[in-house]
Nucleic acid binder design. Structure first.
Lengths: 195, 195, 195, 195
DNA sequence: AATGAATGAGATTTCATTCAT
DNA sequence: TATGAATGAAATCTCATTCAT
């Protein structure tokens, strides 16, 4: 059996899972339904994934990876190294990513997540880069020194994700550009800067 | 059966549910386990709640109500009517509430939520009051007029909840007072004010 | 629900399991079939037994217990304390037990046993009593001192069980009395005695 | 494909099956696992054996054949034609065979056997030769005439097999020579002889 | 109202077997 | 022949819900 066919089955399962998870919610989907929608047999599901949560996890890890990469590309291409420009670039990348992959974004970050199966922890974005950037600003005396940067980074992650999830449910509520503007104002690197 | 006993059964079920939901996550708990832990028969569960999600929803509604009441009391008792003082009071109330009722807070706002059963939507805190307060500030020319206040209110809700959930997982990460300070700096009414 | 009903369900499941295990062999029976034959729902099976092997194990433990009790009664009622009389009594009890409960005997000792499920070891009769009796005879100088009594006891257990299983497959091969006579001649306490 | 390669595949499958059956028990092994461990494709398994039970059966038939041959050689080489010497030779051969091929012995005679699949009966050693030898002794007036020789032969088979299986699990329990001595004392031709 | 044994639909998971390459 | 991805029937097991007491 050619490699292409094999990869195809896996990809079909991932796509079917994404679509069903996004549509029905993570708990109202079963492995049989995923396989059927992928046009494959039940057993095929289990030769590619240990269980439903493994597929979900892969979906989430891929999404996280894609978002991180998009963000890094955007930040690297930012017009200047100024914190505000970098923050704007990162936010624009996230907004664009959510717009382009709404199902993946919802399935990965949505409020209704998979119960953490005993052996498969919830997947989360790292807040490390944001914390480090904030710490740098603080060291340069450009950010409120009273701010707990790790906490602020964590808070920012919640801000961005929570806002984008809401936006995806009400996409007409705001234009992407306005969304970016408002979010930027709330970014710790912007709203807590000094001088 | 005296009224006291009746209420007692309901209260026991709620307490048992809270404890189990918090411990095992919302999806790994079943109605039989809740009844058993409450020291009651399975059937009794169903004479008090339609199903597991009804109990969970009641738990969440109570928590939401308690938090809202605590916040309103705190805001009413704020030293001044200044936006910053009010925001601080609201944040202090939330931190204190989360500290005092960690299980209820996690079960109500936690990332791992019940799948929205067909007939029982996810319960959420209203962002209306925050939006109105921000709008008032804007009208008074004290807040960045470019801010989309509804969006900012929604973002703030995510910020506060996300940060408190993270804190509850390891309360030694920050002192409540420091938590309040940092959160306050990120509150739209504070970080986006003018002048 | 009265206790009688509950015990009844358990007893029905055990009887159904015994009958099916004996008829089809331990591995060609599933929990659904046992429940159905017991006239009960699938779920009922699992509220009484962890799994199919737990039922089988209980069947085997009961059989072992019944056989041991019968043997002890018979030995206690033996006409004299002479080794030969005791051995005869024990053999008679075993033959009678196998004749009276052929299904249970086959299911408990049969060659086609349940694979030892990871957590449920194969159940075996203890060879301790036989070994002790042989040791006593040896100490009294009435048994070949070169005999390894533990080994001989183990060998005897295999002899008795193997012979009875073969007999049960076609009981016309021998009269119970002849069976007892022949087995007795092969019992270590009889065939290895001195003087 | 050269003949050597072909035979090689079959031999690899048999070796893999033996190892897995011995390790995990007959029911916890599947054809795919055997093929994988043999370093061959699943399909290859089915071009050599009808199914898992066919492989197991071949393993058992080979073992039975090997044991019978070893026994016949040993008996033929016995120092004298005396029943005791012949019995000793046969026992020595069996002990040596079990010691040399513990996995094959366990898989062939072990208590945990494959369920007899509908079309593949359990394989067993023939008790014919022993029965005939005992009958001869009886005819010569050298063996207890009350002994049912067929039954005794069957009993002896169980004795030998049961003891050796136990010994394989506790090989330090007895030296081969002591094992032979004890078993010999329990052999019907020895323990039931007259004069 | 309270009880808890019983239920069975449905989810999960395994594995012998097939078949296109 | 050899391969191994794919298959789906069948087994295992869970749990929300009912109902006789």
């Amino acid at each position: 059996m050619p490699r292409a066919k094999l990869e195809d089955a896996r990809a079909r399962l991932l796509a079917a899972g994404l679509s069903l998870f996004a549509r029905r919610g993570t708990e109202r989907v079963n492995s049989n339904a995923i396989a059927r929608r992928a046009g494959l047999g039940v057993g095929t599901f289990y030769s590619h994934f240990d269980d439903k949560h493994a597929l979900l996890q892969e979906l989430q890890l891929r999404t996280l990876g894609g978002l991180r990469a998009a963000r890094q590309r955007a930040v690297a291409a930012a017009p200047t190294g100024r914190a505000e420009d970098q923050a704007r670039a990162a936010i624009e990348a996230a907004v664009e990513f959510a717009r382009a992959h709404p199902e993946a974004y919802r399935v990965t970050f949505g409020r209704e997540r998979a119960a953490p199966s005993k052996h498969r922890p919830i997947v989360s974005e790292s807040t490390r880069p944001t914390a480090q950037a904030l710490a740098r600003l603080q060291a340069e005396g450009r950010l409120d020194p009273a701010l707990d940067v790790e906490l602020a980074a964590r808070a920012w992650a919640a801000t961005e994700v929570g806002t984008l999830l809401w936006w995806l449910e009400n996409p007409t509520r705001a234009e992407p550009a306005a969304l970016v503007d408002t979010l930027l104002r709330l970014h710790p690197a912007v709203c807590c800067r000094i001088g």
